[in-house]
Design a protein around this nucleic acid. Structure first.
Lengths: 156, 156
DNA sequence: TCCAAGAGTTAGCCTGTGCTAACTTAGCGC
DNA sequence: GCGCTAAGTTAGCACAGGCTAACTCTTGGA
């Protein structure tokens, strides 16, 4: 192997390739998004269930997420520790104020991303699926740009 | 708790809430995306490094991703097992044909998402960061819609 | 020529998010 | 009013993707 491979960033450097530090920050931020997105998905769904059915039950969460009930229970314990939900053994799940606030924020974001994709001309089923993945990786600025786009296109 | 809570999906049902099965599928697909996205990021960066510097080194990957070298080594072993890279101890990392193909695909997707965000009016630095997170959650259909948008706007 | 320092590797740990199996509890229906 | 079944919980496991520490290997330069 040749260690003498010349200057660090020679001619062929990719224009879309940021400096190392910035790239590292990008990835750190994606990793962080992964940590928070499940949390957001849970509180969002808990809020939806409460609003639509009057209560949130672990078994419904498990069905919706396609995971075992034990997984849901473990996750709910974490959400409890973070002060987002309250639960008593064998009773319903309730949102704290913080949980409700986070749910509302997620819901707004989710709805906007979905509307954006639909406005963009993406098929409904696909838009729903993609929105689920995209919503957690969209910054406030990009969200704002999406909002502008939806408004602009909606007027036509 | 009242188990007799009436019909399963009463009036207040959220319009953006798909049936359980479909929702579960959405989440399964997000989980799957998480499994593959790191893989794609690695081969993409390996390809970039090879193209720009002539070789890919573990230490550079570690710097770019902001992780320890040991983490990179572990990941490279997995990529090796999946037939995406070839490496000999203490030597450079090479892409297999499959690895190169995956890298090209990721690169195209990444570049398109970035261009799309920029066309949408998102600030450069933010667009780069968001593209990193979004690219793995965008279906072919949505990608196609983005392509159309970029073309449409580019002509103005 | 040879050695110091930088690059690569391995071992062993932690945390998060899945799972199954085995249990406890709640509450409907007889 | 009691028991059956569905729901909830707990324990213990696996695997992915982080980390540090402690090595081994490579190579440029004195």
């Amino acid at each position: 192997m040749s260690r003498d491979r010349g200057p660090t960033r020679p001619a062929g450097d990719q224009p879309h390739m940021p400096a190392p530090d910035e790239h590292a920050r990008q990835h750190a931020s994606v990793r962080h998004a992964h940590e928070t997105e499940l949390v957001e998905d849970y509180v969002e769904l808990v809020a939806d269930l409460i609003d639509s059915k009057g209560e949130a039950r672990a078994v419904d969460l498990a069905h919706r997420f396609g995971v075992a009930q034990a997984t849901v229970a473990k996750m709910l314990r974490r959400l409890d520790e973070r002060g987002l939900v309250v639960r008593e053994p064998y009773r319903n799940i309730l949102l704290t104020d913080a949980g409700r606030a986070l749910a509302e924020q997620s819901r707004r974001r989710h709805a906007l991303v979905l509307e954006f994709l639909l406005t963009l001309g993406v098929d409904d089923a696909i838009a729903r699926r993609d929105a689920e993945g995209i919503e957690h990786h969209v910054s406030e600025d990009t969200l704002e740009a999406m909002r502008r786009f939806v408004e602009r296109e909606g007027k036509k």
